[in-house]
Protein backbone atom coordinates (compact mmCIF):
# COMPACT_ATOMS: atom_id res chain seq x y z
CA UNK A 1 0.00 0.00 0.00
CA UNK A 2 1.41 3.30 -0.98
CA UNK A 3 2.14 5.68 1.80
CA UNK A 4 -0.20 8.64 1.66
CA UNK A 5 1.16 12.06 2.38
CA UNK A 6 -2.08 13.83 2.98
CA UNK A 7 -5.07 13.22 5.14
CA UNK A 8 -7.41 13.83 2.28
CA UNK A 9 -5.91 11.19 0.08
CA UNK A 10 -5.61 8.84 3.01
CA UNK A 11 -9.26 9.15 3.79
CA UNK A 12 -10.65 9.32 0.31
CA UNK A 13 -8.20 7.32 -1.69
CA UNK A 14 -9.70 4.36 -3.50
CA UNK A 15 -6.81 2.10 -2.70
CA UNK A 16 -7.40 2.23 1.03
CA UNK A 17 -9.47 -0.68 2.17
CA UNK A 18 -10.33 -1.90 5.60
CA UNK A 19 -10.85 -5.51 6.22
CA UNK A 20 -14.31 -5.75 7.77
CA UNK A 21 -13.50 -9.05 9.40
CA UNK A 22 -10.60 -7.75 11.45
CA UNK A 23 -11.15 -5.94 14.71
CA UNK A 24 -9.60 -2.61 15.64
CA UNK A 25 -5.85 -2.61 15.56
CA UNK A 26 -3.98 -1.88 18.82
CA UNK A 27 -3.52 1.73 17.87
CA UNK A 28 -7.20 2.19 17.17
CA UNK A 29 -8.02 0.55 20.47
CA UNK A 30 -5.70 3.00 22.19
CA UNK A 31 -7.48 5.91 20.61
CA UNK A 32 -10.83 4.49 21.64
CA UNK A 33 -9.67 3.88 25.19
CA UNK A 34 -8.24 7.38 25.40
CA UNK A 35 -11.44 8.95 24.23
CA UNK A 36 -13.50 6.73 26.46
CA UNK A 37 -11.49 7.64 29.53
CA UNK A 38 -11.55 11.35 28.96
CA UNK A 39 -15.22 11.24 28.02
CA UNK A 40 -16.13 9.35 31.17
CA UNK A 41 -14.11 11.75 33.30
CA UNK A 42 -15.70 14.80 31.71
CA UNK A 43 -19.16 13.37 32.12
CA UNK A 44 -18.35 12.43 35.72
CA UNK A 45 -17.15 15.95 36.43
CA UNK A 46 -20.28 17.43 34.88
CA UNK A 47 -22.45 15.07 36.93
CA UNK A 48 -20.61 16.13 40.07
CA UNK A 49 -21.07 19.78 39.21
CA UNK A 50 -24.77 19.28 38.49
CA UNK A 51 -25.43 17.28 41.64
CA UNK A 52 -23.48 19.69 43.85
CA UNK A 53 -25.10 22.69 42.25
CA UNK A 54 -28.60 21.31 42.57
CA UNK A 55 -28.42 19.73 46.00
CA UNK A 56 -26.18 22.33 47.64
CA UNK A 57 -24.35 21.62 50.85
CA UNK A 58 -27.31 19.84 52.44
CA UNK A 59 -27.64 17.06 49.91
CA UNK A 60 -26.07 13.64 49.93
CA UNK A 61 -23.15 14.88 47.86
CA UNK A 62 -22.65 17.67 50.35
CA UNK A 63 -22.35 15.07 53.07
CA UNK A 64 -19.83 13.16 51.01
CA UNK A 65 -17.91 16.33 50.40
CA UNK A 66 -17.89 17.12 54.10
CA UNK A 67 -16.68 13.62 54.84
CA UNK A 68 -13.95 13.92 52.24
CA UNK A 69 -12.91 17.29 53.58
CA UNK A 70 -12.76 15.84 57.10
CA UNK A 71 -10.59 12.99 55.90
CA UNK A 72 -8.26 15.34 54.06
CA UNK A 73 -8.15 17.94 56.81
CA UNK A 74 -5.31 16.31 58.81
CA UNK A 75 -3.18 16.25 55.69
CA UNK A 76 -3.90 19.88 55.00
CA UNK A 77 -3.14 20.81 58.61
CA UNK A 78 0.11 18.85 58.45
CA UNK A 79 1.17 20.55 55.24
CA UNK A 80 0.18 23.87 56.71
CA UNK A 81 2.35 23.29 59.78
CA UNK A 82 5.29 22.08 57.79
CA UNK A 83 5.05 25.04 55.48
CA UNK A 84 4.44 27.62 58.20
CA UNK A 85 8.14 28.54 58.69
CA UNK A 86 8.54 28.94 54.95
CA UNK A 87 5.40 31.01 54.78
CA UNK A 88 6.69 33.20 57.62
CA UNK A 89 9.97 33.64 55.78
CA UNK A 90 8.10 34.57 52.63
CA UNK A 91 5.93 37.05 54.52
CA UNK A 92 9.03 38.57 56.10
CA UNK A 93 10.73 39.02 52.74
CA UNK A 94 7.52 40.28 51.20
CA UNK A 95 7.07 42.79 54.01
CA UNK A 96 10.52 44.18 53.27
CA UNK A 97 9.48 44.90 49.72
CA UNK A 98 6.06 46.24 50.62
CA UNK A 99 7.07 48.21 53.73
CA UNK A 100 8.11 51.28 51.78
CA UNK A 101 4.94 51.47 49.72
CA UNK A 102 2.87 50.63 52.80
CA UNK A 103 4.50 53.44 54.75
CA UNK A 104 3.88 55.86 51.90
CA UNK A 105 0.25 54.77 51.71
CA UNK A 106 -0.19 55.23 55.45
CA UNK A 107 1.51 58.62 55.29
CA UNK A 108 -0.91 59.66 52.57
CA UNK A 109 -3.81 58.38 54.66
CA UNK A 110 -2.61 60.35 57.68
CA UNK A 111 -2.36 63.48 55.54
CA UNK A 112 -5.87 62.95 54.26
CA UNK A 113 -7.28 62.31 57.73
CA UNK A 114 -5.48 65.35 59.13
CA UNK A 115 -6.96 67.47 56.38
CA UNK A 116 -10.38 66.07 57.13
CA UNK A 117 -9.95 66.73 60.85
CA UNK A 118 -8.98 70.32 60.10
CA UNK A 119 -12.03 70.73 57.87
CA UNK A 120 -14.23 69.26 60.59
CA UNK A 121 -12.77 71.62 63.15
CA UNK A 122 -13.38 74.56 60.83
CA UNK A 123 -16.95 73.44 60.31
CA UNK A 124 -17.46 73.08 64.04
CA UNK A 125 -16.08 76.54 64.72
CA UNK A 126 -18.21 78.00 61.95
CA UNK A 127 -21.32 76.31 63.32
CA UNK A 128 -20.50 77.65 66.76
CA UNK A 129 -20.07 81.18 65.37
CA UNK A 130 -23.36 80.99 63.52
CA UNK A 131 -25.08 79.67 66.64
CA UNK A 132 -23.79 82.65 68.61
CA UNK A 133 -24.92 85.02 65.85
CA UNK A 134 -28.39 83.51 65.90
CA UNK A 135 -28.54 83.82 69.66
CA UNK A 136 -27.50 87.44 69.38
CA UNK A 137 -30.07 88.24 66.70
CA UNK A 138 -32.85 86.73 68.81
CA UNK A 139 -31.60 88.37 72.01
CA UNK A 140 -32.58 91.72 73.59
CA UNK A 141 -29.31 93.45 72.68
CA UNK A 142 -29.97 93.30 68.97
CA UNK A 143 -31.05 96.71 67.57
CA UNK A 144 -34.76 96.93 66.80
CA UNK A 145 -34.66 98.79 63.50
CA UNK A 146 -32.24 96.45 61.81
CA UNK A 147 -32.15 92.96 60.49
CA UNK A 148 -29.00 90.88 60.53
CA UNK A 149 -27.46 89.20 57.49
CA UNK A 150 -25.07 86.48 58.55
CA UNK A 151 -21.90 86.34 56.51
CA UNK A 152 -18.81 84.21 56.46
CA UNK A 153 -15.45 85.96 56.53
CA UNK A 154 -13.62 84.78 53.42
CA UNK A 155 -10.44 86.83 53.56
CA UNK A 156 -8.61 88.45 56.42
CA UNK A 157 -6.08 91.28 56.58
CA UNK A 158 -3.21 90.18 54.41
CA UNK A 159 -0.71 92.64 55.81
CA UNK A 160 -0.17 95.12 58.57
CA UNK A 161 -1.18 97.90 56.22
CA UNK A 162 -4.78 96.84 55.79
CA UNK A 163 -7.38 96.47 58.49
CA UNK A 164 -10.24 95.06 56.48
CA UNK A 165 -11.90 91.74 55.84
CA UNK A 166 -14.02 90.47 52.97
CA UNK A 167 -17.32 88.78 53.71
CA UNK A 168 -19.43 86.51 51.53
CA UNK A 169 -22.50 88.69 51.10
CA UNK A 170 -23.10 91.60 48.75
CA UNK A 171 -25.74 93.69 47.07
CA UNK A 172 -27.53 90.55 45.98
CA UNK A 173 -28.24 89.94 49.68
CA UNK A 174 -29.22 93.52 50.43
CA UNK A 175 -25.90 94.81 51.73
CA UNK A 176 -24.84 98.37 50.88
CA UNK A 177 -21.90 100.61 51.60
CA UNK A 178 -21.85 102.04 55.15
CA UNK A 179 -23.77 99.15 56.67
CA UNK A 180 -22.41 98.44 60.16
CA UNK A 181 -21.00 94.99 60.86
CA UNK A 182 -21.16 93.34 64.26
CA UNK A 183 -20.66 90.08 66.09
CA UNK A 184 -22.31 88.97 69.32
CA UNK A 185 -19.24 90.42 71.07
CA UNK A 186 -19.59 93.88 69.65
CA UNK A 187 -18.91 96.27 66.81
CA UNK A 188 -16.62 95.03 64.03
CA UNK A 189 -16.60 97.83 61.49
CA UNK A 190 -18.29 99.24 58.43
CA UNK A 191 -18.95 98.06 54.90
CA UNK A 192 -16.84 100.25 52.65
CA UNK A 193 -17.09 98.47 49.35
CA UNK A 194 -19.61 96.03 48.01
CA UNK A 195 -20.03 93.80 44.99
CA UNK A 196 -22.82 91.43 44.04
CA UNK A 197 -21.67 88.63 46.32
CA UNK A 198 -18.94 90.07 48.53
CA UNK A 199 -18.35 93.10 50.68
CA UNK A 200 -15.26 94.72 52.16
CA UNK A 201 -15.55 95.54 55.84
CA UNK A 202 -13.25 98.16 57.27
CA UNK A 203 -12.41 97.11 60.79
CA UNK A 204 -12.64 99.28 63.83
CA UNK A 205 -8.87 99.02 64.10
CA UNK A 206 -8.42 100.90 60.83
CA UNK A 207 -7.06 104.39 61.22
CA UNK A 208 -9.67 105.89 58.91
CA UNK A 209 -12.64 104.67 60.92
CA UNK A 210 -14.15 106.71 63.73
CA UNK A 211 -17.24 105.75 65.72
CA UNK A 212 -19.27 108.01 67.98
CA UNK A 213 -19.45 106.31 71.36
CA UNK A 214 -20.37 106.97 74.94
CA UNK A 215 -19.60 105.64 78.36
CA UNK A 216 -22.50 103.42 79.32
CA UNK A 217 -22.15 104.25 82.99
CA UNK A 218 -21.81 108.07 82.85
CA UNK A 219 -22.93 108.92 79.35
CA UNK A 220 -19.64 110.69 78.58
CA UNK A 221 -19.41 111.04 74.78
CA UNK A 222 -16.37 110.59 72.62
CA UNK A 223 -15.11 109.12 69.38
CA UNK A 224 -13.59 105.68 69.26
CA UNK A 225 -10.76 105.33 66.80
CA UNK A 226 -7.56 103.41 66.28
CA UNK A 227 -4.59 104.35 68.46
CA UNK A 228 -1.62 105.31 66.35
CA UNK A 229 1.41 103.07 66.63
CA UNK A 230 -0.54 100.07 67.87
CA UNK A 231 -2.18 97.15 66.12
CA UNK A 232 -5.51 96.54 67.79
CA UNK A 233 -5.68 99.16 70.52
CA UNK A 234 -8.48 101.69 70.41
CA UNK A 235 -8.80 105.07 72.10
CA UNK A 236 -11.81 107.10 73.11
CA UNK A 237 -10.96 110.53 71.76
CA UNK A 238 -12.55 113.91 72.33
CA UNK A 239 -13.56 113.21 75.93
CA UNK A 240 -13.57 116.48 77.82
CA UNK A 241 -11.69 116.69 81.08
CA UNK A 242 -14.80 117.33 83.12
CA UNK A 243 -16.40 114.08 81.96
CA UNK A 244 -16.16 111.19 84.39
CA UNK A 245 -14.64 108.12 82.79
CA UNK A 246 -12.88 105.43 84.71
CA UNK A 247 -11.20 102.13 84.10
CA UNK A 248 -13.58 99.25 83.48
CA UNK A 249 -16.37 101.36 82.01
CA UNK A 250 -18.15 99.84 79.07
CA UNK A 251 -18.31 101.81 75.82
CA UNK A 252 -21.17 101.49 73.34
CA UNK A 253 -22.08 103.21 70.10
CA UNK A 254 -23.82 106.54 70.55
CA UNK A 255 -26.26 106.24 67.67
CA UNK A 256 -27.24 109.88 67.37
CA UNK A 257 -29.96 111.26 65.17
CA UNK A 258 -30.44 114.83 63.94
CA UNK A 259 -33.39 115.63 61.70
CA UNK A 260 -33.13 113.37 58.67
CA UNK A 261 -29.53 112.55 59.41
CA UNK A 262 -28.47 109.78 61.74
CA UNK A 263 -25.38 107.93 62.77
CA UNK A 264 -24.29 105.03 60.63
CA UNK A 265 -24.20 102.87 63.75
CA UNK A 266 -27.28 101.91 65.73
CA UNK A 267 -27.31 102.90 69.37
CA UNK A 268 -26.02 100.64 72.09
CA UNK A 269 -23.70 98.24 70.26
CA UNK A 270 -20.86 97.24 72.60
CA UNK A 271 -17.38 98.39 71.59
CA UNK A 272 -15.03 97.66 74.46
CA UNK A 273 -13.87 98.30 78.01
CA UNK A 274 -11.88 101.28 79.23
CA UNK A 275 -8.45 100.02 80.25
CA UNK A 276 -6.78 103.29 81.29
CA UNK A 277 -7.63 106.94 81.74
CA UNK A 278 -5.10 109.80 81.84
CA UNK A 279 -4.83 113.51 81.29
CA UNK A 280 -2.17 116.21 81.16
CA UNK A 281 -2.37 119.89 81.77
CA UNK A 282 -1.64 120.76 78.19
CA UNK A 283 -4.15 118.39 76.54
CA UNK A 284 -7.69 119.54 75.92
CA UNK A 285 -9.11 116.01 76.23
CA UNK A 286 -8.61 112.96 78.41
CA UNK A 287 -6.51 110.05 77.15
CA UNK A 288 -8.78 107.00 77.32
CA UNK A 289 -7.56 103.63 76.13
CA UNK A 290 -10.10 100.98 75.09
CA UNK A 291 -9.80 97.22 74.83
CA UNK A 292 -12.25 96.07 72.10
CA UNK A 293 -14.57 93.19 72.83
CA UNK A 294 -14.15 91.76 69.33
CA UNK A 295 -11.11 89.66 68.60
CA UNK A 296 -10.31 91.02 65.15
CA UNK A 297 -7.72 88.34 64.53
CA UNK A 298 -10.19 85.44 64.62
CA UNK A 299 -13.28 86.59 62.85
CA UNK A 300 -15.16 83.68 61.27
CA UNK A 301 -18.70 84.94 60.86
CA UNK A 302 -20.25 88.36 61.24
CA UNK A 303 -23.63 90.04 61.00
CA UNK A 304 -24.26 92.89 58.62
CA UNK A 305 -26.92 95.19 60.06
CA UNK A 306 -29.35 96.31 57.38
CA UNK A 307 -32.04 98.87 58.23
CA UNK A 308 -35.54 97.42 58.09
CA UNK A 309 -36.88 100.40 56.14
CA UNK A 310 -34.36 100.04 53.33
CA UNK A 311 -35.78 99.26 49.92
CA UNK A 312 -33.76 96.48 48.31
Amino acid sequence: MPRHRSARSAALGATVRRDPTTSLNPRGAGVLRRRLVVGVLVVLALVLISLTFRSGSDGSLGGAQSFGASVLRPFAVGVERVAQPFRDAYDWVDSLFTARSEAERLREEVRELRQRAIQNEFARQQAESLRLLLKYVEGPRFPDDFRGIAAEVITRPTSAFTQAVVIAVGTRHGVQVNDPVVTPDGLVGLVTRVTDDTARVQLLTDQQLAVPALDLRTGAPGIVRHARGTRETLVLDRVRKEERVRRGDELVTAGWRANEFSSLYPKGIPIGDVTSVGQTDTDLYQQVQVDPYVDFGSLDAVLVLVPLDRRT
Binding site: V38, L41, V47, L48, I49, T52, L61, G68, L72, A76
Partner: peptide, 22 residues
Protein backbone atom coordinates in the same frame (compact mmCIF):
# COMPACT_ATOMS: atom_id res chain seq x y z
CA UNK B 1 -6.20 16.43 41.78
CA UNK B 2 -9.16 18.65 41.04
CA UNK B 3 -11.39 16.49 43.20
CA UNK B 4 -8.97 16.79 46.13
CA UNK B 5 -8.87 20.55 45.78
CA UNK B 6 -12.64 20.81 45.57
CA UNK B 7 -12.98 18.64 48.65
CA UNK B 8 -10.46 20.66 50.61
CA UNK B 9 -11.86 24.03 49.66
CA UNK B 10 -15.52 22.93 49.81
CA UNK B 11 -16.09 24.42 46.39
CA UNK B 12 -18.54 23.05 43.84
CA UNK B 13 -17.43 19.48 43.29
CA UNK B 14 -16.26 18.77 39.78
CA UNK B 15 -15.37 22.26 38.59
CA UNK B 16 -11.63 21.99 39.21
CA UNK B 17 -11.76 18.35 38.18
CA UNK B 18 -13.26 19.25 34.81
CA UNK B 19 -10.70 21.98 34.16
CA UNK B 20 -7.74 19.85 35.17
CA UNK B 21 -9.02 16.76 33.37
CA UNK B 22 -9.04 18.65 30.09
Amino acid sequence: GGLVVDLLTLETLGVTSLVLTL
